[in-house]
């Protein structure tokens, strides 16, 4: 029976959601093609973690070693090379995350397995080839890909695309994989995690967010958004480029590498809607987007869309609320 492997992802003793999202996807592919699903767990301490995976797959394959406590490319690659060579999974799923972006391309090259990254859907087609969907040009174009036949494939999966339900009614068997000795490593060493702490306002606590993107143009214009926010009692947040340029503090950034917010209203001004941004705001109750570009991907997830120059919109809408006071 062909096997689908999922490389699980955890940090500081906790699974990342993407692990269960991938297991759900793997289960879906497996049921359609009569495959089994194995969760691969590299850790220094499997106890507890392995238990959590049991109801979501057919097998939990554990490689336990003190050197595998935190993700580190060299050690992970050394172990995975052995696992994949011995077990021959048809398909290996890896998260398109800070870990997976670091790991998967190296697995592909070192183990000579073709790899397609950042997939939003993965299927096995009739002739055992892989059919994938991904987005290009910042989400403006969808691409459906058929891979050339191969005995193994790697696909990295966009986080947040599949539901992360942990219970798939399974009861996995547990298997321990002997960890090879780590020779000749040490060119890259994990030192520590650093959590960034800020004293700024907490955007995750706001009921209404007025969020500005690169379309705001220059730092002086942020005052216009602030004025609008003040008029409706909202907080100002932003997309990544605005924080990258230092126009607003990093603590205001919404998205995968910023904060996840769920306000009553999210007003996106001049934000194109890249998936890393969407990941942080798509669960807002009401999303209103203002963008000059009618094809901006933000309109795919907004509830209300306005194709307009925000510099026309902002003064007028602010005026509407100021009049009331």
């Amino acid at each position: 029976m062909p096997e689908i492997f999922v490389i699980t992802e955890h940090r500081k003793g906790k699974f990342r959601d993407v692990t269960f999202e991938m297991l759900a996807l793997a289960d879906k592919i497996a049921s359609a093609n009569d495959c089994s699903v194995t969760a691969v767990l590299l850790t220094d301490h499997a106890y507890g973690l392995a238990e959590e995976l049991k109801s979501a797959c057919d097998c939990v394959l554990i490689a336990e070693d003190p050197a595998l406590g935190n993700y580190s490319a060299d050690e992970y690659l050394a172990v995975l090379e052995k696992i994949i060579a011995q077990k021959n999974p048809l398909l290996t799923l890896v998260g398109n995350t800070a870990m997976g972006m670091d790991l998967a391309p190296a697995m592909s090259t070192r183990f000579s397995i073709p790899c397609v990254s950042d997939c939003v859907n993965v299927e096995i087609s009739d002739n055992a080839s892989l059919k994938l969907e991904r987005q290009i040009y910042g989400g403006k174009i969808n691409a459906c890909l058929l891979m050339k036949p191969s005995s193994k494939y790697i696909a990295t999966v966009r986080a947040g695309t599949f539901p992360a339900d942990r219970d798939r009614g399974k009861n996995a068997k547990i298997e321990n994989f002997p960890v090879p000795a780590f020779d000749n490593l040490g060119k890259r060493q994990f030192i520590e995690y650093i959590e960034e702490i800020t004293e700024d306002v907490d955007i995750t606590a706001a009921d209404i967010l007025v969020s500005v993107g690169r379309g705001i143009g220059k730092p002086e214009n942020i005052a216009l958004a602030q004025e609008f926010a003040d008029a409706i009692g909202a907080t100002v947040s932003c997309s990544r480029p605005v924080a990258d340029k230092g126009w607003l503090p990093k603590s205001r950034q919404v998205g995968t590498s910023g904060k996840t917010v769920k306000p009553k209203i999210y007003i996106a001004l001049g934000i194109s809607g890249a998936f890393q941004h969407q990941a942080g705001m798509k669960n807002a109750e009401t999303i209103i987007a203002v963008n000059k570009d009618p094809n901006a991907p933000i309109f795919n997830i907004a509830h209300y869309g306005i194709v307009m120059d925000m510099f026309q919109f902002l003064p007028k809408i602010t005026e509407k609320f100021k009049q009331e006071k």
């Binding site: 080839s129 459906c144 058929l146 891979m147 309109f299 907004a302 509830h303 209300y304 869309g305 307009m308």
Partner: peptide, 26 residues
């Protein structure tokens, strides 16, 4: 590693587009 690539535009999103004069929209 890819044999066939088919591109498409994303399907129209769920957004209700608000149109009309600046004043109506606001």
């Amino acid at each position: 590693c890819i044999s066939v690539r088919t591109l498409s535009l994303p399907p129209a999103g769920r957004a209700e587009m608000l149109t009309g004069s600046l004043d109506t929209v606001c």
